[in-house]
Design a protein around this nucleic acid. Structure first.
Lengths: 150, 150
DNA sequence: CTTAGTGCAAAGCTTTTGCACTGCA
DNA sequence: TGCAGTGCAAAAGCTTTGCACTAAG
């Protein structure tokens, strides 16, 4: 058993939740696709390879659970699906919903979150609005696509 | 006829589209609710007061049209509805998808866009990603809610 | 007159829910 | 063994689409 699995089981137990094969299997898919933004349908298709009898509703419920436990992040890329990505795998601080979306190839890149600190401070001072979470989407053209067009 | 209506009619004609009462009526609702983020259902309810025989499908089609003509902005506040707001009514530069969403009362405030310029410049330099549009959502607690809690 | 636009109803989509069954603790 | 969790199918809710009809140009 990997250390992520042990950690996951502990969290489930701490919340009085049961450890099931389905939950382990879904988390495993997120681990195998770190950095990728998966729709529930995509997760379902992946999980079925290892666990063919799983139901779509279970995947929906598990994904909601993982999101509430803050083990995965919810991302809306406005493509008609709600997407999720694993958030705490890499050593660095968890990057929170910051995405570069290429309008040409559709690729999604991530970038760090510290760049917004001064902005949030300014908003607090001028508007009295206390920011506790943020979601930033930047649309444009990635390096590859720009090079291919030239 | 207001100057916004003349402008709208010109745009429709320039695109080879017909000027219909329904389209005028929907635009009128956006004008009356400048700064508000309306769902299609809400727009439908408002329009029906002036134009009871309008159909929901027409509102959906009109809103898509207005969005393509860049007369309104599409906003997704993750509440299950796609929302729209009029974008070019005030004299200032059009504020592009920048929202402060209060987690307590649900109120949505807007803020200016120039604050992101340095961030985008940095991204271009370091990642080679050219940003052409952006969408920023900041979640937190607004002044009112913070004062009421104390 | 021609055909884009409309209204209605049906269908399409993702997501949620009810309920009997299963399996973890 | 008891009850949380699951699987299936049905339902829900937003949005789109097909089609006959209406009205703008």
């Amino acid at each position: 058993m990997t250390k992520e699995q042990s950690y996951f089981k502990k969290i489930l137990k701490d919340h009085g939740l049961k450890v099931t094969n389905q939950r382990i299997a879904v988390l495993e898919i997120f681990k195998e696709h770190s950095g990728v933004h998966l729709s529930v349908e995509e997760i379902y298709d992946f999980v079925k390879k290892d666990y063919p009898e799983i139901g779509l509703a279970t995947v929906y419920r598990t994904v909601q659970l993982l999101s509430e436990l803050e083990l995965i992040d919810k991302v809306n890329l406005d493509d008609g699906y709600v997407r999720y990505e694993i958030g705490v795998m890499d050593g660095e601080k968890s990057h929170h919903h910051h995405h570069l979306i290429c309008l040409s190839c559709g690729e999604v890149f991530a970038f760090g979150e510290d760049m917004l600190d001064s902005l949030e401070e300014h908003i607090d001072k001028t508007l009295g609005f206390k920011v506790v979470d943020h979601q930033v989407k930047l649309f444009g053209y990635c390096k590859n696509c720009r090079e291919n067009e030239n």
